[in-house]
C-alpha cells in the first residue's frame, strides 16, 4: 500500500507541481502581510498606552479609571466654547487659556482611542469579572477579522485533489489499472489516503503561515488572556484563552479542509472529468457560503464551505471530525459501488 501511495504522490506532484504549492504559499504569505495591516481611525499608540496603564490595575480600579477618564475627556471637550468665551471676555488669562487648549488637544487626540476602550468597558459589563482583563487586543481583533474562508487552501485542494481520480480517465490508464491485482479498491483507497494527506498538510502549512505572519508583525503577546476580553468577542461561549481560541478555530478549519479534500476525491471519482468535477465541486463548496453568514443550523454543521469559513461563535472539533467520517464513508460507498465486493477480492 505504501508503494501505491508513493506513486500516487508522484502522479500528483509530477513535473514540479510542488512549485505551484510553493507559489500558493508565497502568495498567501504576501496576502497575509498586506491584510494584517492595522489601520484604524484612532491612535493605536494612545490605545496601547491606555491598555498598558490598565494592565496593572484590578477590575474595580480599572472601571474607576475609565469612568473618571471618560468624565475628564468629555468635560474638557464640552468646555471648549465656554473657555473660548471666557478668554474673549477676559475672564481668564491667555496662559490659562493656553493651558486649557493644551489639555483640549490632548483630550481630542485621545478621544477616539478612548471611545474604543469604552466600548470594551461596556462589553465587559456583560462578562464575568475574571474575564474583565484589559490588554492590547487590536492585533488579535484584526487576526480574527482576517481569518475567514481561505481561498488559497481551497485552490490547493482543487489543484491537487481533483486530478487524483480524473487523470486516470483523462490519460486513459484506467483500463490498465483495473486489470491489475491491486488496481481497483486498493488503488482507490491509496488515492483517498493521498487526498486526505494533501488536505491535512496543505491546511496545516497554509494556516500556520497566518500565525507566522501574525507573530512576525505583532508578536503573540497576551495570548494567554481570556478570549471574551478581546473587543468584539464578548459573546463567545468558549471559556478559553485567546491563543487556544484561534488555534481551536484553525484546528477546526484543518479538519474541514480534510473534508474538502475527501469531497474533492468523491466528486472526481464519480464525475471523472476535470472541468465538470471542478464546477460541481466549486459549486458544492462555495454556493452555500452565500447562505451561511452566521448560520448555526444544518448548513453550518455539514456545509464544507461554511466549515472552512470558521465558526467564530463557538468552535467545535467534533462536528468536522464527524464530517470526515461521513466523507470517508461516502468515498468508501463510491468505491464499493464501483468495485463490488466479490469473494477474495482486494
Amino acid at each position: 500500500m505504501t508503494k501505491l501511495i508513493r506513486f500516487e504522490f508522484m502522479k500528483v506532484f509530477n513535473r514540479g507541481k510542488w512549485l505551484f504549492f510553493a507559489a500558493i504559499l508565497f502568495a498567501k504569505l504576501l496576502f497575509a502581510f498586506l491584510s494584517l495591516n492595522l489601520k484604524t481611525d484612532f491612535s493605536v499608540e494612545v490605545y496601547r498606552e491606555y491598555t498598558n496603564q490598565l494592565a496593572g490595575m484590578s477590575e474595580s480600579e480599572a472601571s474607576e479609571f475609565i469612568l473618571a477618564e471618560s468624565e475628564r475627556i468629555n468635560s474638557i471637550i464640552a468646555a471648549s466654547n465656554e473657555m473660548e468665551e471666557k478668554y474673549m471676555s477676559g475672564e481668564i488669562s491667555i496662559d490659562d487659556y493656553k493651558k486649557y487648549r493644551t489639555s483640549y488637544y490632548d483630550a481630542n487626540s485621545k478621544i477616539k482611542a478612548f471611545e474604543e476602550l469604552y466600548k470594551r468597558y461596556e462589553q465587559f459589563q456583560e462578562l464575568e469579572p475574571k474575564n474583565r482583563i484589559y490588554f492590547y487586543d487590536l492585533s488579535w481583533n484584526l487576526f480574527g477579522r482576517y481569518l475567514g474562508f481561505d481561498f488559497f487552501v481551497f485552490f490547493t485542494v482543487v489543484l491537487f485533489c481533483i486530478p487524483v481520480f480524473c487523470r486516470e480517465h483523462s490519460d486513459n490508464v484506467c483500463c490498465l489499472n483495473e486489470v491489475s491485482k491491486f488496481g481497483r479498491r486498493k488503488l482507490c483507497f491509496a488515492k483517498i489516503t493521498v487526498c486526505f494527506t494533501i488536505g491535512a498538510v496543505a491546511a496545516l502549512v497554509l494556516y500556520a503561515s497566518d500565525f507566522a505572519v501574525l507573530a512576525l508583525r505583532f508578536g503573540m503577546d497576551f495570548a494567554d488572556m481570556p478570549i471574551q476580553a478581546v473587543i468584539g468577542y464578548g459573546a463567545m461561549t468558549d471559556d478559553v484563552t485567546v491563543l487556544t481560541f484561534f488555534v481551536g478555530i484553525t484546528a477546526s478549519k484543518v479538519l474541514w479542509c480534510i473534508c474538502a479534500a475527501l469531497a474533492a476525491a468523491a466528486v472526481s471519482a464519480v464525475i471523472k472529468e476535470y472541468v465538470l468535477s471542478l464546477i460541481v465541486y466549486a459549486s458544492v463548496i462555495l454556493i452555500p457560503l452565500q447562505f451561511s453568514a452566521g448560520e448555526q443550523g444544518m448548513l453550518g454543521k455539514i456545509g464544507i464551505g461554511p466549515g472552512l469559513q470558521g465558526n467564530f461563535y463557538h468552535f467545535s472539533l467534533l462536528v468536522p471530525a464527524l464530517n470526515i467520517v461521513l466523507w470517508l464513508a461516502v468515498n468508501y460507498v463510491i468505491v464499493a459501488i464501483k468495485y463490488p465486493n466479490k469473494a477474495h477480492s482486494h
Binding site: 490508464v173 477474495h344 477480492s345
Partner: peptide, 20 residues
C-alpha cells in the same frame, strides 16, 4: 468470484490505452 486472484495471473494489453 476469483477477483484479485485471477488478476494476479492475468496480463492484458488493450487496443487503446494511455500512460502517465
Amino acid at each position: 468470484q476469483m477477483g484479485a486472484r485471477f488478476r494476479e495471473i492475468y496480463g492484458y494489453m488493450p487496443q487503446s490505452y494511455g500512460l502517465y
